[in-house]
Simulated scan of single mutants.
Amino acid sequence: MVRSLPQGELFQLDSPLTGEIRGERSLMAFPFFALSKNAWMKPLAYATSDVSIEVRPSARGVATIYDKEIVLYIASLMASKLEQGLPVAQDFVFTAHDLFSVTGANHSARSYTRLADALERLQGTQIRTNIEAGGEGEDGFFSWLSEARLQYARSRNGDKRLKAVKVRLCDWLFRAILRDRQVLDYAATYFQLGPIERRIYEVARSTCVEGEALEIDLQTFRLQIGFQNHLANFRMAMRQIAAEDTVPDYHLQLVEAPPAPGAAGTKGRKAGRAKVIITRRPEPLPEPSDDGPGA
């Protein structure tokens, strides 16, 4: 006879998340995820004199900026445990309901299907980087999640009910959070942003830590954001984002030089050079107190 176990014995949950959403600083600064809602089947690459990143897709494509929400949620659970002085391990068990509540997703059947697809991409995407984590480097590829499972229970009529999500975080990210402690909080409105705005916020948050401004050439910024289309498309997107000025906590300015004359024998004028300047918005002044001197 199979004994019916109470929920607490079936699943030792790490959720619900009680603190803020956090992210590891390297994952904020560099383009590890595709800026797409749909499957991105091409490899991604980023290289400077100091940093190299190579990302290979699985059969379902490269993990996207929306799949990254799960990684941020796990990092937040881990950071919260560390702050409380609790032991941490690489295995995390949480409810899809809490994940959806934190990220602002609805609780429809479609969201659960997207969750399963996202977990598969996070487990299948292969990453290679020379960025060290926790004082150690790695050669070869790793995946964001070395294990990812949806745990179900059966109702009396035989229907499956999702009870918990169980994942194992990769060694690289686990070491980075545990040892480096370069974990930064995210703005509450982050999950309401589009993919490019999310990356702009992350780059700004990881760079302008002490309040200094970020001034960067547009082409270099395109690569750091991870924008895969042409520079002209990125310039148009940046004009719109700068005009709307909706990136939380930061003000973005696009500074463009006048168009240059085209080369001999060509038509039109060549777009001038451009740079991006990002500054942190001033903290809002405190509300005046109603308690005057004679109150």
Score class of each variant (00 low, 15 high):
147 E>S: 12
27 L>R: 07
259 P>H: 07
7 Q>H: 11
196 I>Y: 04
225 I>Y: 00
281 R>P: 01
227 F>G: 10
15 S>H: 03
232 A>T: 14
212 E>D: 15
167 V>D: 09
70 I>T: 08
54 E>V: 05
274 A>K: 08
170 C>V: 00
48 T>I: 06
205 R>S: 14
33 F>L: 04
265 G>I: 07
164 A>H: 03
199 R>P: 05
10 L>I: 12
142 F>R: 09
180 D>T: 06
23 G>H: 00
278 I>K: 12
48 T>V: 03
279 T>S: 14
254 L>V: 09
240 Q>P: 00
15 S>G: 09
126 Q>K: 07
217 D>Y: 04
79 A>H: 12
136 E>S: 10
112 Y>S: 08
202 E>F: 01
268 G>Q: 10
185 D>I: 04
209 V>K: 13
180 D>I: 00
150 L>D: 09
164 A>Q: 07
20 E>Y: 03
291 D>R: 11
220 T>A: 15
231 L>S: 11
163 K>Y: 02
287 E>Y: 01
2 V>T: 11
199 R>D: 07
77 L>K: 03
253 Q>Y: 02
110 R>H: 09
67 D>S: 01
139 D>S: 14
105 A>W: 12
204 A>F: 01
254 L>G: 10
242 A>C: 14
36 S>H: 05
252 L>Y: 06
10 L>V: 09
196 I>V: 13
8 G>K: 14
98 D>R: 03
230 H>K: 13
256 E>T: 11
68 K>V: 04
255 V>Y: 06
250 Y>W: 02
167 V>H: 03
69 E>A: 06
160 K>N: 13
257 A>F: 02
231 L>F: 07
163 K>C: 12
185 D>R: 09
206 S>G: 09
289 S>N: 09
148 A>G: 15
2 V>N: 11
99 L>F: 04
203 V>H: 07
185 D>P: 15
263 A>G: 13
2 V>C: 08
202 E>H: 05
184 L>R: 11
33 F>T: 03
84 Q>R: 07
201 Y>Q: 10
279 T>C: 10
19 G>L: 00
119 L>R: 01
8 G>R: 15
85 G>V: 00
130 N>E: 06
33 F>M: 06
228 Q>E: 15
177 I>H: 06
248 P>R: 06
146 S>T: 15
285 L>A: 13
20 E>L: 06
251 H>M: 08
117 D>W: 03
38 N>E: 15
56 R>F: 02
235 R>W: 01
208 C>P: 00
160 K>V: 02
89 A>Y: 05
204 A>S: 13
199 R>G: 03
82 L>F: 03
261 P>E: 13
219 Q>N: 13
218 L>W: 02
53 I>H: 12
176 A>H: 07
222 R>P: 05
289 S>E: 15
72 L>R: 11
45 A>H: 10
190 Y>F: 08
241 I>C: 12
236 M>N: 15
281 R>I: 01
25 R>P: 04
80 S>R: 06
94 F>G: 09
87 P>K: 04
121 R>P: 04
179 R>G: 01
264 A>G: 10
276 V>K: 07
83 E>N: 05
123 Q>G: 01
157 N>Y: 05
243 A>K: 14
89 A>D: 15
228 Q>D: 12
11 F>Q: 14
234 F>E: 15
189 T>K: 10
